[in-house]
Design a protein around this nucleic acid. Sequence first.
DNA 1: CAAGATATCCGAAACGTTTTGGGAGGTGTT
DNA 2: AACACCTCCCAAAACGTTTCGGATATCTTG
Lengths: 339, 339
Amino acid sequence: MTTIKDIAKVAGVSVTTVSRALNGYSDVNEKTRQKIMAVAKELKYSPNTLARSLVMNKSNTIGLLVSGLTRSSAKDNFTFKILSGVNEYLSNSGYDLVLFSTTSTKQREKTYTELCRERRVDGVIMQGIKTDDPYLIEVVDSDIPCVLIDIPIESDTVGYVTTDNISGAKKAVQHLLELGHKKIAMVNGHEFAFVSKRRLEGFMEAHHEMNVPVNPSWIVSGAFDEDEAERQALKLLTDFPEITAVFCASDLMALGVIKAAKKLKIDIPTQLSIVGYDDILLASYVSPALTTVAQDIYQMGYKSAELLVQMLQGDAVSHIITLENELKMRESTAKNHDC
Amino acid sequence: MTTIKDIAKVAGVSVTTVSRALNGYSDVNEKTRQKIMAVAKELKYSPNTLARSLVMNKSNTIGLLVSGLTRSSAKDNFTFKILSGVNEYLSNSGYDLVLFSTTSTKQREKTYTELCRERRVDGVIMQGIKTDDPYLIEVVDSDIPCVLIDIPIESDTVGYVTTDNISGAKKAVQHLLELGHKKIAMVNGHEFAFVSKRRLEGFMEAHHEMNVPVNPSWIVSGAFDEDEAERQALKLLTDFPEITAVFCASDLMALGVIKAAKKLKIDIPTQLSIVGYDDILLASYVSPALTTVAQDIYQMGYKSAELLVQMLQGDAVSHIITLENELKMRESTAKNHDC
DNA sequence: CAAGATATCCGAAACGTTTTGGGAGGTGTT
DNA sequence: AACACCTCCCAAAACGTTTCGGATATCTTG
């Protein structure tokens, strides 16, 4: 592998000059620059980023720390969309992307901070980390620039991007209320996600504003899992047959609820309205097509990368980005038959 | 950031000893090792992989060069599954993953080889690269260890993993033939994919073995694109109403064909049987559920990583891995009504 | 023409590791 | 007593860059 030294030797100049020529400094004669360029090309020179990073103390690498990179996460390709968005921005920005995955057993051996430090990433984007993850706090408290997805923590070195989950949930529930539903259940995600809390808030607010009482027994946790949601819904719908609508904190869980309803021979949407959250691909293909609140996950990834790079360059105006979402009405919701 | 030098100073030993202690060499007293470990922990030492890689001439990094990391590729999450599989294997192997994407404009500025060399990756996995990509040949001809997905090129430094596309296509077409179909069309992918060629071969072989003639006009290209496949199918099915079945080289294209059939008021499967390829998530959710030949894409990713690591360690017995596939019969195929 | 300015170049140090080739001291063997 | 052999440690070189602080030659200016 040819180095800067080889070029220097062939071109008859010092390594300093080669370095400065290649990096476009002005204190090298145009003639010699040409010469150096030519030699570099001829020798098929590729700069060694390792050496460069070492001396410059900057790796031009950003880490992506995700949790959903498993075989099973194909349905809900949240992680994939984040990744695509991040990648899209980064590939035009001079940063490379290294992937850290927490799926493995490795996660217990090394903390996220250690992973980042060892690879000397300039910054890190984190997604799918639970709020009670001790390693999360460690990173946030470290000096590693960091942007979180759907975790509202802000500091000098950490920012986040999220969507307006309160308003999203509110839109969904308002829609149900406007359809005449008064007995609305909620299948929430697990408690270690901020989005769960926010969506619950939105659920509550919508009820309060319309002066409709909330029954706490109708709020269950589906752990963001299709099967668990199905089990919970099965119980919920048998215990409380008066329920006419259910709001799910994710589409995946909504699919579970649909299955439960089918098992109980409850027709959707005539007997039961369902609205989900995320607008995953399946939402529009499943039958009945799922009414859901759509968030632009790809955009979240893109914006995360943008924010992080801005933070690294010191020109981030705000460390917080909140994206809008949109209620997509499809076939899983209808007027309350009791009205 | 604390270095090995700092530890040496505090522990009162040389950097050599610290290095050797930390790396588990036997020529350091257990007492001093303990001491060094303690100091390292106390100072929150993280080894600098950049420096290590530089001197050892090995980055413990493998590159993943993919093409399908775009917003639009959410439906067909081939790339995501590959990525998941690769990541799964790698996260337990001591290698980190850096992502190169060819979606950007950057691809024309730097060749794949340059990307790999600059980052000093130990090896690279490539997916979604077209066979006529000039940069592909460059990498293959270089000394960079490399495993290709669905591109059968083998050498000292390159291996590949693929599925048995001939037999896969054959199974699909045999199934149609057994159902009594004699006028079978094929919507193939673009010509710059080896899988297209192989699947066409399988298509042909199945016909020959059953002594059923093939009509070349019934073989069209859908470019692996849903919309293009729909357009082609529209034309095909109007021009040749005698066609009773179509084999598609991808599920995505099969979805396009289904749309075309719906537009033409052709019922599936009573009037037209369709079989796809890939078994994407949508295949089982779409209506009618798609008969298709399933390949374990996640496994392809996993095996790719495994193969590459074996090659790097010099203990790969073969550079070729061929995975099996399986015909999944669902609702989009039925007995030929003319029988 | 002296003095400063400018253009062009370079030597050497630095980044944080690993590794080579020893060397000191102790123990056992003959 | 001489020798071999451990055990434990270390100094220095090397990896491929960037950058600091000059050095030299040429040009400009008063």
